[in-house]
């Protein structure tokens, strides 16, 4: 009798804990979303590298500022604009796939993708992200493209830290790594694209696999 009461109470507490967690954190975020976003970033980075090599024999010479190029030249502006379109394309493909895998996971769990917690997560993520977008645009207009990878990494990382309150807390550490990479890239000229590739490509894939093993696999 007493044992039965104990079991019922234990189950009730477990249910309560489950609802508290599900109502305040978006737990359907899929590890595959991270892997997809990372692969998209890698593909985008390869395309960007090809575009840079087309611009100069050695893009690193330019980024190390050992050669100077005419930034007002139409070819240069064209490459910059191609870069912008490529970046927006990568963002769209990464986001679409990311949403798809998370939607699939939520459906499997009988949960919805658009609920109280996910709305809050997206809103918190968007604040630094939009600020970063404004910064990147302003730097682009000023001809300071060199700093854009740093801006992308740092503001994206801040967005993740901000949004992590409403999802798995592991995301916070990914955010911190992105911010750190962004800061590093301010000082190591010529490795912007490489650090961008590590931050958006490699780290996403690694994190996706870790998250998948930890939460999705079972």
């Amino acid at each position: 009798m007493q044992q039965e009461e104990k079991n019922i109470s234990l189950q009730t507490l477990k249910d309560i804990h489950g609802i508290m967690e599900r109502s305040s954190r978006f737990l359907s975020l899929s590890g595959w979303s991270g892997v997809w976003a990372g692969c998209t970033a890698l593909a985008g980075a390869l395309a960007a590298r090809a575009m840079l090599l087309q611009l100069h024999d050695s893009y690193r010479d330019y980024y190390h500022q050992t050669v100077s190029i005419d930034k007002t030249a139409p070819e240069y502006r064209q490459v910059v604009m191609n870069f912008v379109w490529l970046a927006l394309g990568v963002l769209f493909v990464a986001l679409a796939g990311g949403v798809y895998f998370t939607w699939k996971k939520a459906k499997k769990e009988g949960a919805t993708i658009w609920n109280n917690a996910s709305k809050k997560m997206v809103a918190e993520l968007l604040i630094p992200l939009l600020a970063g977008g404004v910064f990147a645009t302003a730097f682009l207009i000023e001809g300071l493209e060199l700093y854009i990878p740093a801006i992308c990494l740092a503001f994206y990382g801040l967005g993740l830290i901000n949004g992590s309150k409403y999802t798995r807390s592991d995301i916070k550490y990914l955010g911190m790594l992105e911010v750190a990479l962004g800061c590093v890239s301010l000082f190591v000229r010529g490795y912007g694209l490489l650090l961008w590739t590590i931050g958006f490509g490699i780290l996403h894939i690694l994190y996706g696999i870790i998250m998948w093993r930890k939460y999705d696999k079972a």
């Binding site: 009730t12 249910d15 309560i16 804990h17 609802i19 508290m20 599900r22 109502s23 305040s24 949960a111 919805t112 609920n115 109280n116």
Partner: peptide
């Protein structure tokens, strides 16, 4: 009723559909 209370104690406010999605 336990479900409703659990969700509301950790959230500032929730609407009907939020609660329905949880319980």
């Amino acid at each position: 009723r336990i479900g409703i209370m659990s969700a509301l104690i950790v959230n500032e406010s929730l609407n009907f559909n939020d609660l329905k999605g949880l319980i």
